Simulated scan of single mutants.
Amino acid sequence: MHEALIQYINTHTSTPLTDSDIDIIKNIFTPRRIRKRQYFLQEGDVSKYMGFIVKGAMRQYSVDDKGNEHIVRLYIENWWAGDRESFAMLTPSKYNIDAWEDTDILTITKASVVEFNTIPALNELARNLDEMHSIAFQKRINAAISMSVEQRYAELANAYPEFIQRFPQHIIASYLGVTKETLSRVRTKR
């Protein structure tokens, strides 16, 4: 499983990994299998891990007082999963993260981040990921406050067609902040 992460790092950084770096990566990232519907993180728990998805799909969501799920993030292969706020601040999470498909993931603990930071390529990767995360977050907020449902769905379908293929309509609807009936009408028009 580590080969997928090493390839990802080499693709997303200009700093080459040394053999020593690869040994450290193999020591600090622990392979884990999460079965479909199994939790990676539950609301109220402190996030002890961040994870790199090698195979599978996950979702991050909150549940309101009426029991409705509100999807905030979807994850697939080569994506990083976790509650950044809870992991960084060691505070209870407001979210659940579970596997939508059987998922193979490489996890890293907060304590291992110290070793992570000793590798120049991983420092570069962290900066690049923070930048990409910030841009994606900005786009998502803008879409939520200024785009129609049709526009949000079209943008999602163009940017992440694999989400449309791998997650059911009710998950996509929740991610877009609409009912599944509204999403069904939008999809029918397309």
Rank of each mutant, 00 (worst) to 15 (best):
Q42I: 08
E43Y: 04
E43S: 13
G44Q: 13
D45S: 13
S47Q: 08
S47Y: 00
S47R: 01
Y49M: 03
G51T: 03
I53S: 01
K55S: 12
A57P: 05
M58G: 10
Q60H: 06
D65A: 15
G67I: 09
H70V: 10
I71M: 13
R73Q: 07
R73D: 12
L74P: 08
L74E: 01
L74I: 06
Y75R: 02
I76S: 10
E77S: 08
E77I: 04
R84M: 00
R84S: 00
E85A: 13
F87P: 05
F87H: 07
A88E: 03
T91F: 02
S93V: 12
K94Y: 09
E101R: 06
T103E: 05
L106Q: 03
T107V: 15
T107N: 09
T109A: 09
A111P: 00
F116R: 00
T118L: 05
L122V: 04
N123F: 01
E124A: 14
E124M: 13
R127V: 14
E131V: 14
M132S: 08
M132R: 02
H133W: 01
I135R: 06
A136P: 02
Q138E: 07
K139N: 15
K139M: 10
R140P: 11
N142Q: 10
A144K: 03
A144I: 09
I145F: 14
S146P: 10
S146W: 02
M147N: 14
Q151S: 13
L156W: 11
N158S: 14
P161F: 09
Q165A: 15
Q165R: 12
Q165W: 01
Q165T: 15
R166I: 13
F167I: 01
F167C: 03
Q169C: 12
H170I: 05
H170L: 05
A173I: 15
A173C: 10
A173V: 14
A173S: 11
S174Y: 01
S174G: 11
Y175E: 01
L176Q: 07
